[in-house]
Amino acid sequence: MKTKLKKTKAQKQGSDSPLDAMKIRTVSGRGIPLPGNDIDTDRIIPARFMKCITFDDLGQYAFYDARFGENGVKKEHPFNHPKYKEGTVLIVNRNFGCGSSREHAPQSLRRHGIRAIIGESFAEIFYDNCTAIGLPIMTSTRENVEGLMSLVKESPTTEVKIDLVKREASCGDFSIAIEQPDQTRKALTEGTWDSTAELLSSLEQIKAVAGKLPYMNGYQAGAKQ
């Protein structure tokens, strides 16, 4: 299908557009290593804390059951550890964020102070949810991730510096390549990760395509594929 790409108002404006504030090119902060594969969103935010109609209070419940035992006794967990208290860059292993589609998971991490996540791989819906709220997440090889984890463990006050444009993250002298799908990197670095305005700019086209869909027009003739 041929379409003209229309620019949104914000995109047409020059460099000091409100979009500038949305551009995420670099993130720096102390790291928090969280080892383990297949950490699911039920673990990131247990379901009982989703009984809410806003995301506002979710920060305190991130990893709640992994961090607190019965009667609120603190357990051994990176989010409880004093040395990672100021950490904002979360480092994880494989298939992080699998399971439920709950956006409560990235929302609780962000409200807890997490500003970026580096991992071996992520579940897809979790990845999309993070991008949709402007929380950059990126992958690297297992070796790199393990390397970064052990470095942060040894030297938790050294900042992890992420450059999305250059596709690299570093911690002291240690530097690794990071990957993101081009589309995600573009959305984050150009500040278009909040997609509603862009999607809405083609409302006429949306209506035109919808009108031709068989189930929108009573399956009239010519609707066959």
């Binding site: 790409l5 573009k186 997609s195 083609s202 395509v209 869909l213 594929q225």
Partner: peptide, 15 residues
């Protein structure tokens, strides 16, 4: 059939 267009980010806009 449900594709509206390719978005500037490179993703597809899907009805």
């Amino acid at each position: 059939m449900h594709k509206i267009r390719k978005l500037p980010t490179g993703k597809d806009q899907i009805f």
